[in-house]
Amino acid sequence: MDRIAVIGDYDSIYGFGALGLDLFPVSTDDPEAAATLRQLASEESRYGIIYITEELAASLKDVVDKYARQPLPAIIPIPGVKNNTGVGVEMVKHSVEQSVGSDILFGKD
Rank of each mutant, 00 (worst) to 15 (best):
M1G: 12
M1Q: 10
D2G: 03
A5D: 10
I7W: 02
I7H: 01
I7L: 10
G8L: 03
G8A: 06
D9F: 00
D9H: 01
D11N: 07
D11Y: 04
I13V: 12
I13G: 00
G15Q: 04
A18I: 15
L19A: 15
L19D: 13
G20S: 07
L21T: 09
L21A: 11
L21K: 07
L23H: 09
L23P: 09
F24D: 11
P25A: 06
V26D: 00
T28Q: 03
T28H: 05
D29N: 15
D29W: 13
D29H: 14
D30R: 02
E32L: 05
E32N: 06
A33I: 00
A33H: 00
A33W: 00
A34M: 02
A35D: 11
A35Q: 10
R38C: 02
Q39L: 13
A41Q: 02
S42T: 04
E43P: 10
E44W: 07
E44M: 07
E44Y: 05
E44V: 08
S45T: 09
R46C: 09
Y47C: 04
G48R: 06
I50E: 02
Y51D: 06
I52C: 06
T53A: 04
E54S: 08
E54I: 06
E55K: 03
E55H: 10
S59K: 14
S59M: 12
L60D: 03
L60G: 01
V64I: 13
D65S: 15
D65C: 11
D65N: 14
K66F: 15
A68L: 15
R69A: 15
R69F: 13
P71K: 09
L72W: 06
P73L: 04
I76L: 14
P77I: 00
I78H: 05
P79G: 09
G80A: 04
G80V: 00
G80M: 00
N83D: 14
N84C: 11
T85S: 12
T85Y: 12
V87M: 12
G88S: 08
G88Q: 08
E90R: 14
E90T: 08
E90V: 06
M91I: 09
V92T: 10
H94G: 09
S95G: 11
E97A: 05
Q98R: 13
Q98H: 10
V100T: 09
G101E: 01
D103L: 02
I104K: 08
I104P: 14
L105K: 09
F106P: 04
K108C: 15
K108M: 15
D109Q: 13
D109G: 07
